[in-house]
Design a protein around this nucleic acid. Sequence first.
DNA 1: AGAAAAATTGCAAACGTTTGCAATCGTGTT
DNA 2: AACACGATTGCAAACGTTTGCAATTTTTCT
Lengths: 345, 345
Amino acid sequence: MADSDITTTGVTPNRVRTITDLAKIAGVSPGTVSRALSGNSLVNTKTREKIETIAREHGFRPNQMASRLRRQKTGVIGVAIPLGHDVRQQISDTFFMILLGHLADELTERGYDLMLRRVIPAEDEDWLDRYIGSGMVDGVIVIGQSDQFERIEDVADGYLPMVVWGNHQEGQRHCVVGTDNRLGGKLATERLIASGAKSLAFLGDTQPIEFAARFAGAKDVADRMGVSIRALSTHLSPDRTGEEIAEHLIEIEDSIDGIFAATDTIAVTCLKELRNRSIDVPRQLKVVGFDDLPISSQTVPPLTTVRQDIAAGAKGLVDLLMRRLNGEDTESLVLPPHLIGRETA
Amino acid sequence: MADSDITTTGVTPNRVRTITDLAKIAGVSPGTVSRALSGNSLVNTKTREKIETIAREHGFRPNQMASRLRRQKTGVIGVAIPLGHDVRQQISDTFFMILLGHLADELTERGYDLMLRRVIPAEDEDWLDRYIGSGMVDGVIVIGQSDQFERIEDVADGYLPMVVWGNHQEGQRHCVVGTDNRLGGKLATERLIASGAKSLAFLGDTQPIEFAARFAGAKDVADRMGVSIRALSTHLSPDRTGEEIAEHLIEIEDSIDGIFAATDTIAVTCLKELRNRSIDVPRQLKVVGFDDLPISSQTVPPLTTVRQDIAAGAKGLVDLLMRRLNGEDTESLVLPPHLIGRETA
DNA sequence: AGAAAAATTGCAAACGTTTGCAATCGTGTT
DNA sequence: AACACGATTGCAAACGTTTGCAATTTTTCT
């Protein structure tokens, strides 16, 4: 009597931890409980209800680890962000974060959890194999190829359920979703030239292949139209980028009249530096960005930019991954960029 | 012969999937392999090396699901974002995303993975119990109390390894990390008044307790200084917020001369609307935000705001969680806000 | 009523790892 | 040469669930 009074302090008298505990209480076998709770097989309605009631009363939840081990499915999609060059940059980069948010939405909707891992390839040679081989995830989404193109290619042959956000190259073996960066670069440059620019600069690191493609597109158009363009390397770590751009501007401000920024983040910083140096945009200098982040419509003057449809990208990544989980070998998905004409060019 | 030729197509001849396979090849028992690979117990150095070599050759990785089931540890921290009111808003909200990035860093550094789940309490009554009871995570970080304060309180008594980002209230039972919102509200308001504002408005939804506290702090100061202040509800869904603010402004622009925005996001939008209506900031109207997001230093004019130290917050969340995983019952951590004086007030 | 078919349920073997305990091996001691 | 003592290793039982198969009950049909 005294004992039962004491145990009353706990909300659940004696915790039901396993499906077997529950089975004992319900007077059935563990198998039946499992079937009843998974709602799958045929179980007598009455039995099911009884089991469900008991489960509810005791706040019982089947152990996922055990379930997953047995079913050989985890219900988890791994999202890996390789930080190839700029360790400081990417993890809180607005673009990736927005993409991540949309991915979380899409995956949740399909009943998957999202496991986020930031990897530094330099410190961990076989990050990708480890992630895949660990049995922790049913599939993998890699955000950004960084400088890991080759390693991703290697893995792609032996592992179907992987989709990568990034740039598509002729004949590559891994399935990628991304914007047509080259076309984006063309659109941006055409706009700059149409606004009257005659001498251009590309602001951004041309190492990552996405950015390289943007620059290549820009160069295509510039060359065709007889306009000069040169690339000025700019890193993406939020602290350094400002100064770097400032230095570049000092060097070039008299010789150019149009800037194509590899990223809206760069463009926004650039706009700020130009304002500091009281250079009038777009009169003296035209600027076009890339991404169309939420900030970009808020700048002064509002930024002309090339829009990537991030939501569509996330949906594409997840759609393709789901099909790959079903054994299908899917093609890459290249999304069209759109020029958003605002006031900086 | 022909057969072996065919199998040669696979990179690894016959895949070593389990620790037992590997044991067979190495000519030892599974137990020894386990010990060798986990690097824990005493295993003969030679044996260990041999096993490690074979493991590397075959690209073997122990199955995490099984390991976790057996060890009753997952190595995963769940991060839940409850979307109480504004479903559209928070998942891609800049503030949360930055916090998430820092969390990923902190957790990765400590060898944990991060499992992200966005929950909609309205659709799923016991999201928190389900998350905790599933055996999928060793601990939980809840980002934002939303309107789930009570449910979190309920769970806190029975479940130690949970830390929440949000507002601290006298006598609450769950461990929280967050900024002193009330003090932040005071700082913002003092600044507005010091800049000469005499009639204030608070822009933001006062439903969530964080924001309520900010407003309360503002009201403290305003009342004490004999300045009027009123709250104007503003939602955070990125699409609606612009119009809402515009409507508010039309209504109040003549009667007030200072705005305290609950969030930098709101402040930035507000700045834009003010510019559209050619209201001079800070001459005609002063504005102070809250958060100090990266954008905030980039606006025109640069935004005066109250800084939350997000990195410190993430570190605090993870530190406390680690201590709780060790059985310690930790106190909440309240971080001091700092006024960042720029040009809007 | 008896048999066949259908619906439920129980049994027990997985899933792949970890780990306490016991057995074995090697080496130094008396 | 027998023994003791550590250092390694093997054995086998968990961890908690799912699921094929067989056994049981219920229903249906003749």
